[in-house]
Design a protein around this nucleic acid. Structure first.
Ligand code: SF4
Ligand code: SF4
Lengths: 161, 161
DNA sequence: TTATTATGGACATCACATATCTATAATAAA
DNA sequence: TTTATTATAGATATGTGATGTCCATAATAA
């Protein structure tokens, strides 16, 4: 139940790209140096981000990466799902056991198609709910919101003088 | 970002132990048969649950497992943390990079010990928040709450006749 | 004493994360 | 057009953790 390092790298890379006083493309070399991650590995991550439309990439001289959309439209959830995939946090592995009958189909003797979501498994329901709570929070935090927070801090610090 | 199968098994095992019309200990054989998981593997999981005080175990004839405390005091979070461990969902891997200076220590030039939690990393703050939201939800759902829900369903179904 | 049951350690296997290297394609500048 | 530069994709290596089995040992009740 941990996020991978790749997610860590992706977030930091995007934060770098989102930095306000930056208007030119930034190449893998600069990113690699800034994050302290090998160019090879970071490339793969950036490629994934490009394939999912988070960043744009242009090869050739003075090429590099830039955000494909405003930083306030790139949520933590977006990044995490690109890198970690989109599977459910919980996937039942033994729906053929006796347990299943007891918990999920207790009253599902009626094979009616009326409300397919109603007769759902109770365990999965809890896990689904948990996932939705997590996702909602991650949707509300963006690359921009972190950058704003950093700016606010710098501002506060300047005033303290 | 997925829960392991072991967590799945643990939850189902506990749901079996928590079933109301059951007053004797239940052995690994019965559990294994009910869940459709090998005795060997399930043993390990039950041992973990015992070490963390979720269940009690007694060896010997007619031995087996039983819940160590009421099912309403066993939360989903308890079970998950026993099986998956208690690490943070996000652990920074490059706090020595340039990025770090920018995001976490923007205004941390002052090495005062006043508020150690205040100058925390902004990325970790978001992730921590996400984790707390998830945990809170998982704390609010217990083995008992699922059993209650199952009972309610059975009841509804009986009435529909 | 004996049959039964849980426990712990040693392995085996597999999937995945992490990481590197190389060849290729695309692009801008010359 | 040519060239230097940069991203991309494939192959490969390595380590770690999840999953699973087997066996010897300890504990307990009958
Ligand atoms: S009750 Fe839910 S989690 Fe359990 S076996 Fe059935 S579908 Fe899977
Ligand atoms: S800013 Fe936070 S996440 Fe990033 S390197 Fe510093 S401590 Fe780690």
């Amino acid at each position: 139940m941990q996020f991978s390092k790749s997610t860590d790298y992706a977030l930091h890379a995007l934060l770098h790209l989102g930095h306000p006083d930056r208007h030119h493309n930034v190449g893998i070399k600069e990113l690699s140096a800034t994050l302290g991650v090998s160019e090879s590995y970071l490339s793969k991550i950036m490629s994934k981000l490009r394939q999912d439309g988070i960043v744009r990439a242009v090869p050739g001289v003075n090429g590099g990466y830039e955000l494909a959309r405003p930083a306030e439209q790139i949520t933590f959830l977006d990044v995490i799902q690109v890198i970690e995939g989109r599977q459910q946090m919980f996937e039942c592995s033994n729906s053929k056991s006796q347990q299943h009958q007891l918990l999920a189909e207790e009253g599902a003797a009626q094979p009616d198609r009326k409300r397919p979501g109603q007769g759902e498994c109770l365990v999965e329901q809890v896990m689904e709910g948990a996932q939705q709570h997590l996702y909602q929070y991650l949707r509300e935090h963006t690359i921009q919101s972190v950058l704003d927070e950093a700016f606010k801090r710098r501002h506060q610090e300047a005033n303290k003088k």
